[in-house]
């Protein structure tokens, strides 16, 4: 066992990045066997390091105790990862399943291309939140920046604050719920009537993210589906 590892009374495994390299941490987290009893981890001194706790495939709990750099919790498949600070570009990118909770703000491309799981951001997310999302649920308690949900394919994006320019540009599918204002909608994104099924999905996500808002306070946006097929009338535009 590395000197950076230390088991506490609560059976949380402490890993101090000031004492051991990131590669060692990720190797340990990525090679945990399915039935591991090492289910709770705390990472000290992350200091904005990149690729923290990426590629975990076992349902363990990981607390990153500080600010995280690029692609934190990327490719997560089943773990519950909490970042006790801000996250830089691409937090939870390509998540397959599990849960990632950012206690602070997230930079651009949060939840990019992710297939599943739940990403909760307590603060704001900047540009391109949920870009090309493919099934992930994202709940942002603050605002999202421009081009959020760009080319989103499926999943749900919940924004409790405001959305920036070009929300849902070139959207395939995905539900975009926004409580505040939307600066502008992107190409082929439109306001939708919220049905009972949509409201139930939103209500469940709000409850799981610990947000005390009601579904009727939100507006639903989705794809107008006019970009699905090539229209010969538009040939001159190319």
């Amino acid at each position: 066992m590395s000197s950076a590892l230390e088991k506490t009374m609560e059976d949380t495994i402490m890993f101090d990045l000031a004492a051991a390299p990131l590669r060692e941490l990720n190797e340990k987290l990525q090679t945990l066997p399915g039935g591991t009893n090492q289910t709770a981890w705390r990472i000290a001194n992350p200091r904005g390091a990149h690729a923290l706790a990426v590629g975990i495939t076992t349902p363990v709990q990981v607390l990153i105790d500080g600010h995280a750099g690029y692609y934190a919790a990327g490719m997560n498949d089943g773990a519950a990862i909490t970042i006790n600070g801000n996250a830089a570009t691409g937090v939870a990118e390509n998540m397959m399943s599990g849960r990632v909770h950012v206690k602070g703000d997230a930079s651009q491309s949060a939840g990019a291309t992710a297939h599943g799981g739940l990403l909760i951001i307590d603060g704001n997310a900047s540009a391109r939140c949920g870009i090309s999302m493919k099934g992930i649920d994202i709940v942002v308690k603050g605002n999202v920046g421009h081009m959020s949900a760009f080319m989103a394919q499926s999943g749900n994006l919940v924004v409790c604050g405001d959305a920036g320019d070009a929300l849902g540009d070139s959207l395939y599918e995905a539900r975009l719920f926004v409580k505040g204002s939307v600066k502008s909608l992107g190409a082929d994104c439109e306001k939708k009537q919220m049905g009972a099924e949509d409201a139930a999905i939103l209500s469940d996500l709000l409850q799981r993210a610990g947000v005390a808002a009601k579904p009727e306070e939100f507006t639903l946006y989705g794809s107008a589906r006019t970009l699905y097929h090539f229209h010969v009338d538009n040939a001159g535009a190319y």
Binding site: G48, G69, D105
Partner: peptide
């Protein structure tokens, strides 16, 4: 990147944006 700010004095209490 935040990494370059991590050693500044009092960074723990700084307003980051």
């Amino acid at each position: 990147e935040y990494r370059a700010l991590a050693d500044l004095p009092g960074i723990e209490a700084a307003h980051l944006f």
